[in-house]
Amino acid sequence: MRRRRPAWALGSVDAVINCAALSQPALCEQDYQLARAVNVPDKLIAALVRQRRTRHVEALLVHISTDQVYDGSHADWTETDRTAPINAYGRSKLEAEQYVRTHWERRIILRSSLIYGPQPPHPVGRPLFLQFVEEALREGRPTRFLEDEFRSAVYVKDICAVVSHLIKLLPDAPPHHTYNLGGPERLSRLDVARAVARHCGHGEKAIEAVTSSSMGDRGYNSPLDISMHVDRILTEIPVSLTPLSEALKEIFPAKVVAAAK
């Protein structure tokens, strides 16, 4: 019986967007080899090399990295700042960046911040941050939110817009290989929780502001401030980055009406 070839073998691939990641910091600390096996795309690049050799097509690799390659010692990180991650997740993602740079020339690395967005069409294995916040506030459950850890939380639609534009550039490419991809604001989780409360009209009684030092041992080190400058991507790629307040109108549209009543 003749074996059917897999779909990927039927033609060449012009672009690959690598979103695969083991992104739970505590799990990465427990098993770094597992973190590395998922986060360093050596097998993916081996497949791209095979395609280049057999089909003479060198695909664009868009690799999603993380803001946790920075150590969190100050605000507003730029792409040229020193990378020195303080947890296993960040180290595995930095190792991935280094592997991609060494082994594949036609690449774009996007250092994403905390990603938020609407509920996905298919269930995911863990609750999304914004949806967790909205549910906790709606039910009035006292919930702790960090007030002293800052990131440039980014709307998932903005990531899709950036990636879409990069693919449309083919066969050209932007001037740089590495870009910070965060939102336009420096936000703590407490800031996000308060924004959700205001938007949805839930009030802030359930919100408890806490510091990272009060959290005890989380099983990993967490950088205090990995907010990022996004000037490079805004200058070189014609996209806009959505403020949290505007994104909330799309993610929880019914809440706008409910809050206004």
Rank of each mutant, 00 (worst) to 15 (best):
N18I: 11
H74L: 10
I233F: 06
A59S: 13
A195I: 03
M228R: 04
G117T: 03
I226K: 00
R53L: 15
S23P: 04
A26Y: 09
E105V: 12
G125W: 12
I108L: 06
R218E: 10
A37M: 10
A9P: 10
P41C: 13
S240W: 15
I115H: 01
K255Y: 12
S92G: 02
G117I: 00
S188N: 06
G182R: 00
V196W: 00
V100D: 06
T66P: 03
L234Y: 06
T178P: 00
K43I: 15
H56W: 15
V230T: 09
K93F: 02
N39H: 08
G182A: 03
P171H: 02
Q33G: 07
I109P: 00
R189T: 00
D191H: 15
V62N: 08
Q30K: 12
D148H: 06
S222A: 09
R82P: 06
V210S: 00
M1T: 14
H176I: 10
L114T: 05
P123V: 02
R144Y: 04
S213D: 08
A197W: 00
A20L: 07
G183E: 00
L130H: 02
P41M: 13
R82V: 12
D71N: 10
A260G: 11
R141S: 13
S214G: 09
H229A: 11
S240Y: 14
R107Q: 14
P121W: 07
A136G: 12
R82T: 15
A206F: 01
A173G: 06
R3A: 09
I237Q: 07
L187G: 00
R2Y: 06
V13H: 03
P25A: 12
D81G: 07
V256L: 15
S113C: 04
R194D: 01
V230F: 02
K249C: 01
F252W: 05
Q98M: 05
R111D: 03
L27C: 10
Y116S: 04
P142A: 06
E105C: 12
V256G: 11
R218Q: 11
I159V: 15
Q131L: 11
H177L: 14
R91F: 03
R189E: 00
V256K: 14
Q98H: 06
S12N: 08
V163H: 09
Q51L: 04
V13Y: 02
A259E: 14
R186W: 10
V256Q: 15
A15D: 07
E105I: 09
L187N: 01
A247C: 04
T83D: 00
S213H: 10
C200Q: 05
L181Y: 10
H199K: 01
S227C: 13
I109N: 01
V162Y: 01
V13I: 08
I226V: 07
E149H: 03
R218G: 03
H122D: 14
P174T: 03
Y116E: 02
R4A: 09
R107I: 13
E95G: 04
Q33S: 09
S240A: 14
S222G: 03
L60C: 09
I237E: 09
